[in-house]
Design a protein around this nucleic acid. Structure first.
Length: 370
RNA sequence: GGAGGGGUAGCGAAGAGGCUAAACGCGGCAGACUGUAAAUCUGCUCCCAUCGGGUUCGGCGGUUCGAAACCGUCCCCCUCCA
């Protein structure tokens, strides 16, 4: 088996999980947040910085690297790790989400998905088998089944049909997976807002048997309450002994709610995207650093953060970088936001270990970003 | 001194009688962003106000039912010639 998951402790009141995820390239305490490095780069940061702001496990993307530069080239470097000079662990998404986010120009059939290249318009076709083969070439420690991620509010009928197909795709993917001993293939739970479909999804994926399970189809436009309702429903349905990965979630409040509902792994572009757009996650709430109010603020971005950005630069300077369109601003806030989440996850784990998660949750929801 | 061109909102720049409080760009001020087609997108940006009202297109004076636009005059700016 490529990975091993140890469930070490559960918060007595909420059941929030603390564990360790062992991979071929490192063991990681969970709950963990994994920065997203779609194109074999966490935007604006170099590898040394990624080490500082992550736990050592980051994401890459099948769709993007397949199209550019091509998975064969990445394979020639020994996979993404060699390509980007990353000596930590990796997880790749299957490209399934891109099928959803590029939905204006897609056609889904039993075989796979046909859609247009977002850069040059050429017609492309991707199957579950292709996705796994590409991910074999990319060489991540954890890889994803090729799934369809329908809009949350699609009809029951559509979700059902899509879900059944995604289950068949999961089975097909597992059958062609070449390296189960070095790459753990996760199944992805879908079903939108429909609990019976979610349950059905879990049951079928369990039959196929994966070393870990992802929850997909959330944080795609539904309300927070809708998302939390599904998370709560799934809490005691997911396999106990396997890692649970909530895909695409990364605001502090959503992470907290995920952890409370038994999630072990998170990834999200939010911290790096909003950083590039001038917003910071801090212990005192969201700071839109480009706002005029920080024009002459000599204090640090986050008064309770000990990252190099908060130690060395003022809010006023950071605002100046954004107003002047200097790229250092994007880098520094990206660094901080990821560091902030790394710290948040550490604090979450401590709280669980001490059976004080509930208390910690209240604090975060009251004071932190959003 | 002569000939031509021009002065429009914070800046640049359209507009050449009513559809114009005035396109568009920049700048400014906010907002959004959740398995990254995103250093992006959206809104606001003369003044006061909730409807609505009040002042504008170098100055002044005209023509007209109506002028940023037409006429006169003055003031500034640019180019060329002496």
């Amino acid at each position: 088996m490529a990975i091993r998951f140890e469930l070490i402790h559960q918060d007595k009141e909420t059941g929030a999980r603390y564990g360790i995820l062992h991979t071929p390239h490192g063991s990681f305490e969970t709950p963990i947040f994994m920065p997203v490095g779609t194109q074999a780069t966490v935007k604006t940061l170099d590898v040394d910085e990624i080490k500082e702001v992550s736990q050592g496990l980051i994401l890459g993307n099948t769709y993007h690297l397949w199209l550019q530069p091509g998975d064969e080239i990445v394979k020639d470097h020994g996979g993404i790790r060699g390509f980007m000079n990353w000596d930590g662990a990796l997880l790749t998404d299957s490209g399934g989400f891109q099928v959803f986010s590029l939905s204006k120009i897609r056609k889904i059939t039993e075989d796979g998905v046909t859609f247009r290249h977002h850069l040059n318009g050429s017609l492309l076709h991707l199957t579950p088998e292709d996705s796994i083969k590409i991910q074999n070439n990319l060489g991540a420690d954890i890889i994803m089944s090729f799934d369809e991620c329908p809009p949350f509010h699609s009809s029951y009928e559509y979700h059902k049909e899509s879900l059944e197909r995604t289950i068949r795709w999961a089975k097909r993917g597992k059958e062609v997976h070449e390296n189960p001993d070095s790459q753990a293939l996760f199944g992805i739970v879908q079903g939108g807002p429909y609990k019976d479909l979610r349950l059905h999804s879990i049951e079928e994926l369990k039959k196929i048997d994966f070393p870990g399970y992802s929850i997909g189809g959330l944080s795609v436009g539904e309300t927070k309450d809708e998302m939390y309702e599904i998370l709560e429903f799934l809490k005691d349905k997911m396999p106990e002994e396997k890692p649970r990965y909530l895909m695409g979630v990364g605001s502090p409040d959503d992470i907290i709610m995920g952890v409370e509902n038994g999630i072990d792994m998170f990834d999200c572009v939010l911290p790096t995207r909003i950083a590039r757009h001038g917003s910071a996650m801090t212990s005192v709430g969201k700071v839109v650093i480009k706002n005029k109010t920080y024009e002459n603020d000599l204090g640090p971005l986050d008064p309770n953060c000990d990252c190099k950005v908060c130690k060395n630069y003022s809010r006023s300077y950071l605002r100046h970088l954004f107003k002047a369109k200097e790229m250092l601003g994007l880098r520094l806030v990206s660094y901080h936001n990821l560091y902030f989440l790394k710290t948040l996850m550490k604090d979450i784990r401590e709280a669980i270990k001490n059976d004080r998660f509930s208390e910690f949750k209240d604090k975060v929801l009251k004071e932190y970003y959003r």
